[in-house]
C-alpha cells in the first residue's frame, strides 16, 4: 500500500544526480522546452562550428564570384556553384553568411549578457545587503534606466563611445563597444531581482549565524547569499540573452552595430531588406528566420526555466 520508492538511495554522481533531478524531469516532460532547447542547441553548435560547416567562406573576397549574385535557393549559379539558401547580391552564400552571422550575434549577445549579469548581480547584492543609502542610490539609478527603452540607452552609450574613441580605432573596438553598450542597457533587471532576493536571504538565520561568527560581509555575500539567488538570475540571463541578441540585431540593422567586415544577423537583414521588393526574398528571409528561431527558442527556454524554478508551481 505504501509508496514505491527506491530503497535506500545511495549517493550518486553528478551526472546521475542531474538525470534524477526535478528540473530534468520537468524538462523531459515539457515538449516546448525540449523543442526549444534542441533548436537553440543546433543553432549554437552551427554557429560555433561555422568554419567547418559552411560550404563557402563568404568573407574571403577571393572566393567570391559576382556571377553567383542573386542565385535563388537550391539552385546552381552560372558559375556552377550550388547555393542551398541562395546567394546575395555579391554572390555570397546566404547559408554561410547566416552561420558566420549568428556567430557574431551569439558572441555579442552572450558577452553582453554576461557583462550585464556580473554588473547587475554585484550591484544587486550590495544594494540588498547594505540597504539604506547605498540601496537607495543604486535602485534609483535602476529606476531611471528602466524608464527608457534599452535600445535607446544602448544607442546613447554607443554614440558617446564613438565620440571618445579616435576614428582609426573605431573599427577594431566596435565589437567591444557594442557589448558594453548592450550590457550597460540590461543590467538593471538583474540588479533589481537580485536585490529583492538578497533582502529575503539576508534576514535568514544562516546569515545571522555567519554574522555572529564574524564572517566577512564579502564572504557572506559571495559564498552564502549568491548561491541562493542564482535561480532567478539564471532565468533573467536566459531571457536577457534573447533580448540582447535582438538588441544587437536592431543596432546592426540601424547601422550602428558591428562593423561591415563582421556582419551579424542584423547586418544581414539590413542588407537583405534592400532586395525584398525586387524579388530576391531569400537574402532577407533566411537571416530573419534564423534570428526569430534563435531568439524565440532561447526565450521559451527562459520561460520554462522560470516556471520550473518556481516552487509554487512545482508539483
Amino acid at each position: 500500500m505504501s509508496a514505491s520508492a527506491p530503497p535506500g538511495r545511495r549517493p550518486m554522481g553528478l551526472f546521475s544526480r542531474i538525470i534524477d533531478s526535478d528540473i530534468f524531469y520537468s524538462f523531459r516532460t515539457s515538449p516546448v522546452a525540449v523543442v526549444a532547447a534542441s533548436i537553440a542547441l543546433i543553432l549554437i553548435l552551427a554557429a560555433v562550428f561555422a568554419p567547418w560547416i559552411a560550404p563557402y567562406n563568404p568573407f574571403d573576397p577571393r572566393t567570391l564570384n559576382l556571377m553567383d549574385g542573386y542565385t535563388a535557393p537550391m539552385e546552381t549559379s552560372f558559375a556552377g556553384n550550388y547555393f542551398l539558401l541562395g546567394a546575395d547580391h555579391q554572390g555570397r552564400d546566404v547559408f554561410s553568411t547566416i552561420l558566420y552571422g549568428s556567430r557574431v550575434s551569439l558572441l555579442v549577445g552572450l558577452s553582453a549578457t554576461l557583462f550585464a549579469m556580473t554588473l547587475g548581480v554585484s550591484l544587486g547584492l550590495i544594494a540588498g545587503y547594505r540597504g539604506g543609502f547605498t540601496d537607495a542610490i543604486i535602485m534609483r539609478i535602476c529606476d531611471i534606466q528602466l524608464t527608457f527603452p534599452a535600445i535607446l540607452i544602448a544607442l546613447l552609450i554607443f554614440g558617446v563611445a564613438r565620440g571618445l574613441i579616435p576614428p582609426s580605432q573605431q573599427e577594431s573596438t566596435a565589437l567591444y563597444v557594442l557589448i558594453l553598450a548592450i550590457g550597460l542597457s540590461n543590467w538593471a533587471q538583474f540588479a533589481r531581482t537580485v536585490r529583492g532576493a538578497t533582502m529575503v536571504e539576508r534576514q535568514k538565520d544562516y546569515v545571522a549565524a555567519a554574522r555572529i561568527m564574524g564572517v566577512h560581509p564579502l564572504f557572506i555575500l559571495v559564498r552564502h547569499i549568491l548561491p541562493n539567488v542564482t535561480g532567478p538570475v539564471l532565468v533573467i540571463a536566459t531571457i536577457g540573452l534573447a533580448l540582447a541578441i535582438i538588441e544587437e540585431a536592431t543596432l546592426s540593422f540601424l547601422g550602428v552595430g558591428v562593423p561591415p567586415t563582421q556582419p551579424s544577423l542584423g547586418t544581414l537583414i539590413r542588407i537583405g531588406q534592400q532586395f525584398l521588393f525586387s524579388g530576391e526574398w531569400w537574402i532577407l528571409f533566411f537571416p530573419a528566420l534564423t534570428l526569430v528561431l534563435l531568439a524565440l527558442s532561447v526565450n521559451l527556454l527562459g520561460d520554462w526555466l522560470r516556471d520550473a524554478l518556481n516552487p509554487r508551481l512545482r508539483k
Partner: peptide
C-alpha cells in the same frame, strides 16, 4: 558564544554541504 535558532529550515544554508556548515566556525576561527 554561539547561537541556535528557532527555524532549522532557515538557519542552515540550503546550498552548502552539511560538513561545510558544521565546519564554518572551524574555518572562521
Amino acid at each position: 558564544f554561539q547561537m541556535i535558532f528557532q527555524d532549522p529550515f532557515a538557519s542552515l544554508n540550503p546550498r552548502w554541504h552539511v560538513a561545510d556548515i558544521v565546519a564554518e566556525p572551524l574555518r572562521v576561527f
